[in-house]
Design a protein around this nucleic acid. Sequence first.
DNA 1: CTAGGACCTGGAGTGGACTCCAAGGCAAAC
DNA 2: GTTTGCCTTGGAGTCCACTCCAGGTCCTAG
Lengths: 126, 126
Amino acid sequence: MVANLNPRALYTIGECARRSGFTMDTLRYYERVGLIDDVVRTTTGQRRFTDGHLEWLGILKCLRDTGMPIEQMCGFAELVRSGEHTMTERVRLLEAHREAVDERIADFEAKRRYLLGKIDYYRSVA
Amino acid sequence: MVANLNPRALYTIGECARRSGFTMDTLRYYERVGLIDDVVRTTTGQRRFTDGHLEWLGILKCLRDTGMPIEQMCGFAELVRSGEHTMTERVRLLEAHREAVDERIADFEAKRRYLLGKIDYYRSVA
DNA sequence: CTAGGACCTGGAGTGGACTCCAAGGCAAAC
DNA sequence: GTTTGCCTTGGAGTCCACTCCAGGTCCTAG
């Protein structure tokens, strides 16, 4: 999932953006709203991200791209912050989301069929 | 797709909303931006929708729910307005959209698998 | 040493798609 | 005939998720 994994490496925000697929602005925004934690800073204030962050960003990307709203992602982030004892709760949340994704896929497939029908119809009268 | 089809029937905007799944506000908005045409009015100015509109709204719903932006839907509506000679162009547009939908579905399925992996992982450490 | 690029902050602005509102007209039920 | 509810308009407001900006600092290649 993450290319060139190099433990202990530190990435600038630009590099992290390039590797995660988020923009720098989005990364700063996510940090601000509490979706990204423990970003260390250089003595001059620049952010440094780790491979752990990249892994976490992979999860966020998955959740975001499958339609989870920021607020819910914040809830998940909060669970992760809270420690090991939230594991079952995390599973519950992800399971619920997976179900939502399944429904979404089913809906898309139904709409895809409808679309094919329309296309056939247009072809038949063209 | 449309229940209780009753040719020549006329529906108030409220009834049309109920049957189409759009809100009244959205219907008015769609009319305003040119997504819905030929809405007749009573002498007192109230809109009356037909089964033809409901059918068209079914298409719009499909396109919207599969992620087509309003502007593109307007383009499609324009083709439909322009008459029979735009059939191949309509097919082209819908085909392109179907491909986008296919990609979207594939992406969702990949993310779904990723999610399942995460859930398994969380379960394993819980 | 200096030019150019990467990074910082707080806050304002954007885009898309609605969604709501006030102030009023009209319709159907009782 | 009046109350209750549905409908009208133009325009303003909302929400989400960024995205951009100004004005400044910092880093690095030559």
